[in-house]
Design a protein around this nucleic acid. Structure first.
Lengths: 339, 339
DNA sequence: ACTGGCACTCGCTACAGTCGAGTGCCAAAG
DNA sequence: CTTTGGCACTCGACTGTAGCGAGTGCCAGT
């Protein structure tokens, strides 16, 4: 049976009430709180249909109805209207982000801000190295056989790593090496570096050949393969809101999942600027079924350099959360564009 | 009334049993599990005294006894013997830390290791900048009026910050400025830099005067005053062990406290190599009364460059935790000494 | 197609009763 | 003076019963 407009209205009302009260909602209280223009009995019939179709369910035989993941999905896709942020919220975002002093600062402020406004767990990915270009490579001698390589990306990220040289280099050799690497790599996207690094080795003068080999290993390993991506997390305390009613009582698996950077990256490591909503079981991570995740990409201008998002109970205020996540992503993009 | 040896034995037995079972311990089960050589009635008398003195208490009138903070304190100070780590644990520590590739890596591995072994929340402070010396200062031109300052400390930490110049500088001027700053600051302790930075400004050639002023502001602000200290955290999921029996049911305040870097620093920002144990109410942070914290300093050789520690329920295995924290600190020190 | 009425379900709360671990006290023994 | 066995008492945990009420499904009537 198809769902007519009124049934959709009923579903919307159920979602809204349940999100607000956190209690299963019955037919009577529904008609009281919303102008549906029909009697409780009619609503009950509609509810029976909605339940048959899998959009809502009863926790116990004689209790009210609760939306299912499928119900939330329908709500998000077709029933909710975007809720614009209040001017106060906009101002709060701006005030909070202005004054950030370096990339670390921007990311930390953003993640805290997001957690605070949405009152949920917030995750922000650092600008992805894969999508950055090399601004400068610095080689700092630590001893005659040891260099510290510092890479500065155009997104403001700075990565460092030590490299053990097979043979000692003197000051002028380091200078040459520094010039060569910078000439070769500056301005290129990190994901494009492997062939360039190889060319660097091939073209190096004989005396620097061994050193460039060592250097190239470290460059490839650190900048392309390894932990490459970083994330910041905030607002875990918000998981305890709703006194363990959400998350069926056990925060354990959620906290465990949140400790894994890899998992966080999967959640919010967006490539597209699209805002994505994952509801309950739609989630790929087993530990996080039972939670919903709203994520989006951000970046200066139209290009995307990283993702951010929030995680909360499936019973969350989707319109509000989506609006906030988008707004914060836009502001962060503007912040980055200024550098 | 003074506590004779047997009363101390009884206290020790109570602490051990309670830590193991997590249930109030009664006189009968005590004599069953320990060879005290006396009857339950005698133990009861001793318990009454211990309770008068404030070392133990009854949750309910007709329940067994539970140690108080004061009881744990006495236990830690006088009754517990250091529990040496098993060879397996030692090997696990070594295996886990070997292969760390840069400072970030060392810190992350350490904090996860600590959380895993103790099965509690672990906190590790990055080597304090105040206790580091400057190894190198790099100035990277981003535009003609903008520099990125990258400071590399001897502990491996790298901090960066952008500085807006009052007037454009050309390449050679930047080189001069770089040479001057490095000559002045390299090798000196960060806490000693303020006068040196001032001298740098005073001695700068006329044409670079304005630039050094801008630079000095940023240097002082970033490297000395600002977020200077960083910490890593892991194992929050361990808070949920013991199914909310610890922490009287609410993780909220604890998670909130753990989100504040300032608070974490207070907890483990040790200056001395002494291992410190804070039990329950001894804690200065209100949100964390009800938890215990074991912390110690670490560093290469005898000097201390940072702190690390764990946080758990007052009902924790103190001897084991203390031994682990110390061992991990020692290994981290050795790792750092190798750089 | 909608509505009012009605019987039914079932979780929640309150209350009473039982059980048992553990205590405090006391008088007797060492 | 310390230790011990005995004993009455306390009180939380658990169990079973009963009443309440929100909510449902169904059905007959409009």
């Amino acid at each position: 049976m198809a769902l007519d407009d009124r049934k959709l209205d009923v579903l919307r009302a159920i979602v809204e009430d349940y999100v607000a009260t956190q209690e299963p909602v019955g037919s009577k209280s529904l008609v009281e709180r919303h102008q549906l223009g029909v009697s409780p009995a009619t609503v009950r019939n509609d509810m029976a249909v909605l339940e048959d179709e899998g959009y809502i369910r009863q926790p116990h035989t004689s209790a009210g109805r609760v939306p299912t993941d499928r119900g939330y999905r329908l709500f998000v896709d077709r029933l909710s209207t975007v809720k614009p942020l209040s001017p106060a919220e906009r101002r709060a975002i701006e005030r909070f982000l202005v004054g950030a002093v370096d990339l670390d600062d921007v990311v930390h402020r953003t993640v805290r801000l997001l957690a605070q406004i949405t009152r949920q767990v917030a995750v922000v990915q650092y600008p992805s190295l894969a999508r950055s270009t090399v601004r400068h490579l610095e080689l700092v001698p630590i001893s005659t056989t040891r260099l510290m390589v510092v890479m500065i990306a155009n997104t403001g990220r700075v990565e460092q790593r030590q490299v053990e040289l097979p043979a000692p280099l003197d000051e002028s050799q380091v200078t040459t090496l520094r010039r060569l690497t910078n000439e070769k790599l500056c301005g290129s996207k990190l994901s494009d570096t492997p062939p360039l690094v190889q060319a660097l080795v091939d073209e190096a003068p004989q005396e620097l050949r061994a050193a460039t080999v060592a250097l190239s290993t470290v460059l490839l390993e650190t900048l392309v393969e390894r932990h490459e991506e970083r994330v910041a997390l905030a607002g875990t305390a918000n998981l305890t809101r709703g006194g363990l009613l959400d998350f069926q009582g056990s925060l354990r698996p959620i906290l465990e999942a949140l400790e894994e950077e890899v998992i966080l990256l999967k959640l919010i490591g967006e490539v597209e600027p699209i805002t994505r909503v994952r509801i309950g079981d739609e989630n790929e991570i087993d530990n996080l079924r039972g939670t919903s995740i709203v994520s989006t990409g951000y970046g200066p201008g139209v290009t995307i350099v990283g993702g951010l998002g929030v995680l909360g109970p499936t019973r969350m205020d989707y319109p509000g959360t989506i609006a906030t996540v988008r707004a914060v992503a836009r502001y962060v993009g503007e912040m980055l564009a200024q550098n």
